[in-house]
């Protein structure tokens, strides 16, 4: 029962011959060797496997890879192309929003998906979204602060661009 599946991950096309029962997270990690996405519970609660599917945060443990053919999948590896951390990753580092780092890729992708959708999110709204995923190290506060800080910086940068284009 092998199935041909074509996946688009981080803008790259992959042709796979896999059992249809393979979950997206297992395919990302073990077939494509993109091990930045982690596995924490395999029943959709911890969120360590969160990736973006067509821009929206989703649990990669609750998707079969075969289901997301044709979708644009983004993983944590897409955030720091060229080796430089992006602004969100830098905010996590500055705020000490990670300790062991196991939940971190899921938190990052959750935040990226959410902020793209809701750039004006308040800190309380961010906190509620962070509640989607489990972290056992930080107590969450610094994760919320990191995402909130990043959102503020992005808004300021956008305003700055608007101001400059207006002048």
């Amino acid at each position: 029962m092998i199935q041909l599946v074509e996946l688009s991950v981080n803008g790259e096309r992959h042709d796979l011959a896999i059992e249809p029962r393979r979950t997206l997270v297992d395919v990302l990690r073990h077939d494509l060797r993109l091990t930045g996405t982690h596995v924490g519970c395999e029943h959709g609660i911890c969120g360590a496997c969160t990736v973006l599917v067509d821009g929206q945060p989703a649990r990669a443990c609750l998707l079969f890879a075969a289901q997301v053919e044709g979708a644009d999948i983004r993983t944590v590896e897409s955030l720091s192309e060229g080796g430089a951390l992006n602004d969100l990753q830098q905010c996590f580092s500055e705020h000490h929003g990670l300790q062991c780092g196991f939940c971190t890729p899921g938190m990052l992708m959750l935040a990226e998906g959410y902020l793209a959708d809701e750039p004006d999110a308040t800190k309380e709204e961010i906190r509620e979204v962070v509640a989607s995923n489990l972290c056992r190290c930080t107590g969450y506060q610094t994760i919320v602060e990191a995402i909130d800080d990043c959102a503020s910086r992005r808004r300021a940068a956008l305003q700055d661009r608007l101001d400059r284009s207006a002048s």
Binding site: L34, T35, G36, T37, T75, V76, E77, L79, S80, G83, L85, Q89, F92, S93, L98, C100, G101, T104, P105, L108
Partner: peptide
Amino acid sequence: DPRLLAGR
């Protein structure tokens, strides 16, 4: 941080 944040 850099490696953990980059998924590496």
